[in-house]
Structure formats: C-alpha cells, structure tokens
C-alpha cells in the first residue's frame, strides 16, 4: 500500500475511500434486492391464498392482537428516525451522539421484540397456533354446540375455559362455511412471516450494537461513515417490510363483525 493511501479505514484492495464506499453502498443495495425477492416469495404466496380464501383470512386475522401491533409499528418507525439521526451524528464526527442514537435504535428494536414475545405468548396461551392445539380447542368448542341452530349456537354459554376465538370460530365453521384448515393456513403465514421478520430484527440489533462498538473504538471517523449508512439501509428495509406485514396480517380482519 503506498503512503498516500495510508488511512486506517481504507482496506488494502481498494484504490481510495471513494471506491470503497461506492462498493459498500452498491453491495448493500444489491443485498436489499435479494431481501425483497426473499420476502417477495412469501408475500406472493400469501397473496395467492388471500385471493383464494378471502373470508377465512379475514376471520383468522380478526383474532390477532392489533394493540401490540400498533405499538410495535410506532417503535419501528421511530427507530428508523433515530437511525437516521445516528448517520447525521457520524457525518458530523460527533462520536458520543452517534453511540447514543445507535443505542436508542437498538433499544426500540429490543422493545419491539419484547412486545412480539408477549404477543406470541398470548397466542400460545389461547392455543391460537396451527396444528394440534388449534384443532383440539376448536373441536371442543364445536362439540358444545353440535346440533344447535345458528341462533341457539350464538346464544350458547360456553364453558369458561373455551377461548374467545374458538367460540366465534365454532359458530362460523358450523353455520357459515368457514373452513378451519384455511384459517390455519393464515396462521402459518402469520407465524412464518413474523418469525422471519423477527430474525431480521435480531440480526439488525446485532449489527447496530456492532457499529456502536466500532464507533466507541474510534474506527468510524466522519470520512468513513458509510458503515453506519450500510447498516441503516438494512434497518430501513426491515422497517419497511413491517409496514407491509402490519396491514396484511393485522388489518385484514380489523373490520370483521362476528
């Protein structure tokens, strides 16, 4: 490496920092393209079934917890703002502020995951999980109202341990041609999509903390702020994907009257 290029931020195989940053930026944009195709596959599959089974998807969606989802949406949108403020701090060379904003971002992301954890736990306690739990719960509810007319079934006093979703779904399955298999199909998409998104959030938290560590070590001088920018682009994508998941999963059944 010749002397004139001898800045610590420059990696050995690049001509100058301009080339290095151009590579990093192009690389992350291409990576984002692969991410869009990755999620695009499952969004496509969701769309197919939403089109085939609109009624079941509404019914299934109406039992999800929209309060938590709304709070989480606020968390994520705010975290995108704080991430951008971190870039500004990095450009200005304000190390303390950079680390502070990165920590705020990581904290908001962690809060998202904690809320998501509570939501999963609630779904699990309600047996709103595709497979055995779902089928047993629904079967018990349907057994209670077996042979009753729709009016009677709606007025039926279920046993206290029956879950709210199972009571409503049992009536719909018996009298409104709702196919429980397709309700479970929606739940599959709900769990797979939110789980993959959650994995992306956790990876994002790791990356943000790594950048904070690098900043604390002093390896992110203002002329090398592209490290922060690269992580922020990833973070904004994760955020944007949530903005599509939220309406597809939670708001689909928001107006549904049981």
């Amino acid at each position: 490496m010749s002397a004139k290029h001898n800045t610590p931020a420059l990696k050995h195989h690049f001509e100058d920092l301009g080339q290095q940053h151009a590579c990093e930026r192009l690389g992350i944009w291409m990576f984002l393209a692969t991410e869009i195709l990755f999620f695009g596959g499952i969004f496509g599959a969701y769309t197919v079934y939403r089109y085939l089974y609109p009624h079941e998807f509404e019914v299934a969606s109406s039992h999800l917890n929209r309060t938590i989802a709304t709070i989480n949406t606020i968390f994520l949108i705010t975290s995108s703002l704080t991430m951008t403020l971190a870039i500004r701090a990095a450009k200005l060379g304000n190390k303390g502020e950079l680390i502070r904003w990165l920590f705020v971002t990581a904290a908001l992301a962690t809060a998202f995951m904690v809320m998501k954890g509570f939501e999963y736990a609630e779904d699990f306690h309600e047996h709103y999980v595709p497979g055995r739990m779902f089928q047993d719960e629904l079967k018990s509810a349907r057994d209670e109202i077996a042979g009753k007319s729709e009016e009677d079934a709606k007025k039926h006093q279920f046993k206290p341990e029956r879950q709210k979703w199972a009571k409503e779904l049992a009536v719909q399955v018996n009298h409104k041609h709702v196919d429980p298999g397709k309700v479970q199909l929606f739940l599959c998409f709900y769990y797979i999509m939110t789980a993959i998104h959650g994995i992306h959030i956790i990876v994002g938290i790791g990356c943000i903390l790594w950048v904070a560590w690098e900043a604390w070590r002093g390896t992110i001088p203002p002329e090398n702020y592209s490290t922060v920018e690269v992580v922020s682009l990833y973070w904004h994508l994760v955020d944007a994907i949530w903005l599509f998941l939220m309406p597809l999963l939670y708001l689909t059944g928001a107006g549904y009257k049981h």
């Binding site: 291409m30 393209a33 692969t34 990755f38 999620f39 695009g40 596959g41 499952i42």
Partner: peptide
C-alpha cells in the same frame, strides 16, 4: 443468482 436464489430460499 442475486434475484432468483432468494425465492427458492423462502420456498
């Protein structure tokens, strides 16, 4: 590789 592989991954 960039645009097709992620689709088979999710599949």
């Amino acid at each position: 590789q960039l645009l097709a592989t992620p689709v088979v991954a999710i599949t």
